[in-house]
């Protein structure tokens, strides 16, 4: 690179550009393996996800090494064979090819492909194996834009928050009520689509307790970005307690909550929602029997605080535009207050 004398401005731009690209790549390499973000796929918390992660590293490094070799050859050629100021304008040898070299670089990618395929198939054999027979069965049904969750062997129905015990395999049966969605909890497992008209499955054994973020990964219409959910991995005991509680009907209401319960029935909420133990048996929206015990509401996008519940009931369309909770009547401030009290009491 000749930077002496009068360097044209575009050369400085070139320098700045290459430095910037280098900085980003360096930042990546430095951060890779160290940055633990909430929804990353790089810090697996289940056996099958660990298997996937074990495939990620070798394939990534293989790609990096191939890039360095090929790009190195290219950059070397550019610098080595660039026309110099003292170029004699002669014609270089007109080489049309070299059979031996060409065989070499046909075989080289072939070998790399075979290696990658073997690694891939090995991992597939692990994650696509049948789940253990004692796996917990969970049925998830996708709706625009929330998740219906069933525990078929325990007679429990809930929504948007899936509880599972640690160290026990969990086997998801995935279905859709409307369009295609995709079930993805990056720290626990790769994604699987929820196809209307058929059932997909995926399984893994979680290895660490915690609250994990999940998100719909297949574009499914207006509020796709806000179709999120949570998975709670907890101890066997905590999970059993949770199941026990979920099986029960809604608690008895008193005071404002009781008035709210009456409004819930008279104000069309019942058309869509179920609250077991009451007259509400709608199936269009999420089951709310124990909604107050969930950490989040509105398809995993809002923390379950009194303020958020109130705002959601009052104006869900501004919080999650396009969502299908469209009230046929305007609610008064008092209605909203009473309904909020009711929802918050649904422990």
């Amino acid at each position: 690179m000749r930077l002496t004398g009068h360097a044209p401005a575009w050369r400085l731009a070139r320098m700045a550009g290459l430095v910037a690209i280098g900085a980003v790549v360096a930042a990546f390499l430095a951060g890779c393996g160290a940055v633990d973000t909430p929804q990353t796929m790089l810090f697996p918390r289940s056996d099958n996800n660990q298997a996937i992660n074990d495939l990620y590293a070798p394939l990534t490094w293989l790609a990096v090494v191939i890039f360095i070799i090929v790009q190195g050859l290219l950059v070397y050629s550019i610098f080595r064979f660039r026309v110099r100021d003292d170029d004699d304008d002669s014609i270089p040898p007109q080489i049309h090819g070299n059979t031996r070299l060409e065989i070499v670089w046909t075989l080289a990618p072939s070998i790399v492909v075979v290696i990658m395929l073997i690694l891939t198939y090995q991992t597939m054999a692990v994650i696509e194996a049948d789940p253990p027979p004692d796996a917990l069965r969970v049925r998830v049904v996708g709706h625009q834009w929330w998740w219906e969750v069933h525990y078929p062997d325990h007679d429990v129905v809930t929504a948007n928050e899936i509880h599972i015990p640690i160290d026990r395999a969990v086997y998801f049966e995935l279905e859709s009520n409307d369009v295609i969605h995709s079930f993805w909890v990056p720290r626990l497992m790769g994604k699987r689509d929820l196809m209307p008209g058929s059932t997909n499955t995926i399984w893994f054994t979680p290895s660490e307790e915690g609250l994990y973020l999940g998100q719909c990964a297949e574009y499914c219409g207006t509020a796709h970005a806000q179709m999120r959910f949570h998975v709670v991995v907890e101890s066997e005991t905590a999970f059993n307690n949770w199941l026990e509680r979920q099986r029960e009907p809604a608690v008895e209401m008193t005071g404002d909550a009781a008035e709210g319960a009456a409004l819930f029935v008279s104000r069309a909420c019942v058309t869509c929602h179920t609250i077991r133990g009451t007259d509400a048996i709608g199936t269009i929206g999420p089951d709310l029997t124990h909604v107050a015990r969930r950490s989040y509401i509105a398809g995993g996008i809002l923390e379950n605080t009194p303020g958020n519940v109130r705002n959601w009931i009052g104006d869900s369309q501004s919080l999650k535009p396009g969502n299908l909770m469209v009230l046929p009547v305007e609610l008064s401030e008092e209605d909203i207050r009473l309904l909020t009290a009711y929802i918050l009491a649904l422990k």
Binding site: L73, L74, I78, F81, S90
Partner: peptide
């Protein structure tokens, strides 16, 4: 993954086109 093979061939041939030239 098989597609990587012909694509690799092309890539190497492009680099070899530059190699030994007057760039």
């Amino acid at each position: 993954m098989l597609i990587a093979i012909p694509t690799g061939i092309k890539m190497f041939n492009w680099v070899a086109t530059c190699f030994g030239g007057r760039i």
